[in-house]
Every structure is written in structure tokens, then in C-alpha cells.
Simulated scan of single mutants.
Amino acid sequence: MQVPAVADSATAALRIDELRKDFGAKAAVDGVSLVVPAGSFFGLVGPNGAGKTTLLSMAVGLLRPDAGSVTLFGSDVWADPVAAKEVLGVLPDGLALPERLTGGELLAFAGSIRGMAPEVV
């Protein structure tokens, strides 16, 4: 999938519609909707326990929502995860990274364990 070079009104970079996630009787995310236009920069702020990490985990396909939908440049994160993830990069918090590798070495390592040819990385 080609990422649009210029923001157009038809395709948002990120569109979240009525996203919901419950953990038991507690609603961690309750009907959140958001549109992030292509080429823009957004931040998500709030107190601890507000649902920020849960919302972002659902938005990038790491946690399945109970209701709602998420699209990245028009591709549904849950209906077409491969197309959605072709235009997405995520570095989750809490990810343990080898301290002695440079950024390039880390990318080469990650690519090699996923079968990428060394010349691609």
C-alpha cells in the first residue's frame, strides 16, 4: 500500500470510530472516536489509568477491541492487518532492547530473525 504524500480529506492517517475495551466490569476505553489527518502530529495525554495505552494498543493491532473500528490510511487494522501494518511502525513501551546494539544493528537483527535478506536491512 502506498502512503499518500499529501493529506487528502478522503483518507485519514488514523481513524478510530467508537472504540471500546472492557476489562471485567471496568470500561478502559469507552466509545472513543478520533481522526488524525495525514501529515499531522498528535499526542494522547491523560492521567495514569485513563486508557491511553489500551487505546493505542487497539489502534495498532496489539489488542482486540470489544467494539468499534480502526483504519490506517483506509486499511482496517482488524479486517486487513497486513495492509494496515505495512504503513505502521510501533515501538511498544516496556520492550527490552539489547543495550549494546546500535539502531542499525538492532534493525538488522530484527530483520534477520524474520528472514529478511541482509542487503534489505
Rank of each mutant, 00 (worst) to 15 (best):
Pro65Trp: 00
Pro92Met: 11
Ala67Lys: 06
Ser33Tyr: 07
Ala28Asn: 06
Ser112Val: 00
Thr53Pro: 03
Lys21Ala: 03
Ala79Pro: 01
Leu106Asn: 06
Pro47Leu: 14
Asp8Thr: 14
Val70Ala: 14
Val29Ala: 07
Gly74Phe: 08
Phe41Val: 15
Val77Met: 15
Leu14Gln: 04
Ala12Asp: 09
Asp22His: 14
Lys52Cys: 11
Thr54His: 05
Pro81Asn: 13
Met1Cys: 04
Thr54Phe: 03
Leu88Asp: 00
Ile113Cys: 06
Gly49His: 12
Trp78Gly: 03
Gly46Tyr: 10
Ala28His: 01
Arg114Pro: 00
Asp22Ala: 13
Thr54Trp: 02
Pro47Trp: 03
Leu101Ile: 03
Val90His: 03
Asp22Thr: 05
Val82Thr: 12
Ser33Trp: 05
Gly104Phe: 03
Gly89Ser: 13
Gly31His: 10
Val87Pro: 01
Val87Lys: 14
Pro4His: 07
Ser9Cys: 04
Val82Asn: 10
Asp17Ala: 12
Leu56Tyr: 01
Pro47Asn: 07
Leu34Asp: 01
Ser69Leu: 04
Leu44Asn: 08
Ala12Gln: 07
Asp22Ile: 00
Phe73Ser: 09
Gln2Asn: 13
Ala59Leu: 03
Ala10His: 12
Ala5His: 09
Val45Thr: 11
Leu95Gly: 05
Gly61Asn: 08
Leu88Met: 15
Ala96Gly: 10
Glu119Trp: 09
Pro65Glu: 02
Val3Leu: 13
Glu86Asp: 14
Ile16Trp: 02
Asn48Gly: 09
Gly94Cys: 12
Gly51Asn: 08
Gly43His: 08
Ala38Glu: 11
Ser112Lys: 07
Leu97His: 08
Val32Arg: 10
Ala108Val: 02
Glu99Tyr: 01
Val3Phe: 09
Ala5Pro: 00
Ala7Lys: 14
Arg114Val: 00
Leu97Val: 15
Ala25Asn: 13
Gln2Asp: 13
Leu62Pro: 02
Gly94Asp: 10
Ala27Ile: 00
